[in-house]
Design a protein around this nucleic acid. Structure first.
Length: 360
DNA sequence: GAGTTTGAAACT
DNA sequence: CAGTTTCAAACTC
């Protein structure tokens, strides 16, 4: 059975309509199907349309017009939606140190503790973007810098030196989260409005300000994807070459995405990044379909022969070695990375390094 | 499964 | 742009 998540069902043409397939349904677990009765699936109420997908055989919608056979009209509808909100079809969740719902919620009655709440539905905390009332979101309450678990992690890191990003290996049994996406600013893209303006003072590509708050948690704008207790590498969007763009438009395959990430110039590349294809291209920017995340502690448990630290070194090696600004350290040792830390090099003075160079 | 509640999207 | 209406998903019974 086809699904909205099937690549073949994606509306993979036209402006900005190549989306991460599961960038959709923030709330339900229906995995790319809708039950629209009145909207003909031509409004954003429709989860399939909202996700940038056509409806499919799994849907129970009535009078559906969101079909490939109607693609011209759908494309027009999408343009209209985008004229109102250019980011209407973008992923709804950004990746930062805790992950946040880009648009925020305005819950009044649910306390952000039910799936009515888009933040809760994504299993992310509420944020300054939310206008919710009586927020009790277990993943992070509006106004607080983090959820309880995250705060615990932050506190732990603060027990060490400053500018420390603690990285856990997931051994504390956090369940994995649904896919979320790095919506960090592409410093090199003409459509780089995906930043949290309130946290940045300029957009100088070569001198990215790093608003390191007192709790020492990195800003979402620096692609530092530390997801709950899971670990992910810092990574940057990078513009694609014309060949890559054409390739993505024509016949994008998982192997190609793997190859892209196998590119030695991809500073943040890692073995587990490569385990998370496919990647989608939009606005000439490569974007992971899901953040590089560790899906289970088992997958990235300390390796029997090398130890997790070495494994992380292997994964992060390119970054830690090629970016002289970052260096890894290890708690005295046991071979796992439960308390492994990435330290900012002192000379950064609170600034992250520039994105890696563009490779033609 | 029907009815109710909820909040996002659309509309005015 | 604030208030209202529409909509579909989440939830309850």
């Amino acid at each position: 059975m086809a699904s909205c998540e099937d690549s073949g069902n994606n509306m993979n043409e036209g402006a900005s309509d190549i989306n991460p397939s599961h960038g959709s349904s923030p709330i339900n677990d229906s995995n790319g199907k809708c039950n629209c009765m009145k909207s003909q699936c031509l409004k954003l109420y429709c989860q399939c349309l909202s996700a940038g997908n056509f409806c499919n055989d799994n849907c129970s919608c009535k009078n559906c017009l969101n079909k490939e056979a109607n693609k011209d009209r759908v494309k027009q509808i999408k343009k209209e939606k985008q004229s109102r909100d250019p980011r209407a079809f973008e992923p709804k969740v950004i990746v930062d140190e805790m992950s946040r719902n880009r648009k925020g919620c305005i819950c009044r009655k649910s306390g952000c503790m039910k799936k009515y709440c888009s933040c809760f539905g994504f299993e992310v905390g509420c944020s300054c973007h939310c206008q919710c009332q009586n927020c009790t979101n277990q993943y992070g309450v509006k106004g607080s810098s983090s959820s309880a678990k995250e705060q615990e992690r932050v506190n732990d890191s603060n027990n060490g030196s400053k500018n420390v990003e603690t990285m856990d290996n997931g051994s504390s049994s956090q369940s994995h989260h649904p896919p979320v996406y790095d919506n960090s600013p592409n410093q090199l893209s003409e459509n780089s409005d995906a930043r949290a303006d309130d946290e940045l003072d300029n957009s100088n590509v070569n001198n990215i300000p790093m608003p390191m708050p007192s709790n020492q948690v990195a800003s979402p704008d620096y692609n530092f994807a530390v997801h709950q207790n899971h670990v992910a590498a810092p990574y940057y969007y990078r513009p694609l070459t014309p060949v890559q763009i054409q390739s993505s438009r024509n016949n994008f395959t998982e192997q190609q995405s793997t190859d892209l990430f196998g590119d030695p110039d991809w500073h943040g590349q890692s073995s587990f990044l490569r385990t998370n294809p496919p990647f989608y291209y939009d606005n000439n920017v490569a974007e992971p379909s899901s953040i590089p995340r560790i899906q289970s502690s088992q997958q990235y448990q300390p390796h029997q022969s090398h130890g997790f630290h070495q494994q992380v070194e292997a994964s992060f090696g390119a970054m830690t070695r090629q970016h002289p600004f970052l260096r890894s350290s290890q708690q005295p040792n046991n071979g796992d990375a439960t308390n492994m830390q990435l330290r900012l090099h002192p000379h950064l003075h609170g600034r992250w390094p520039s994105p890696p160079p563009i490779d033609d």
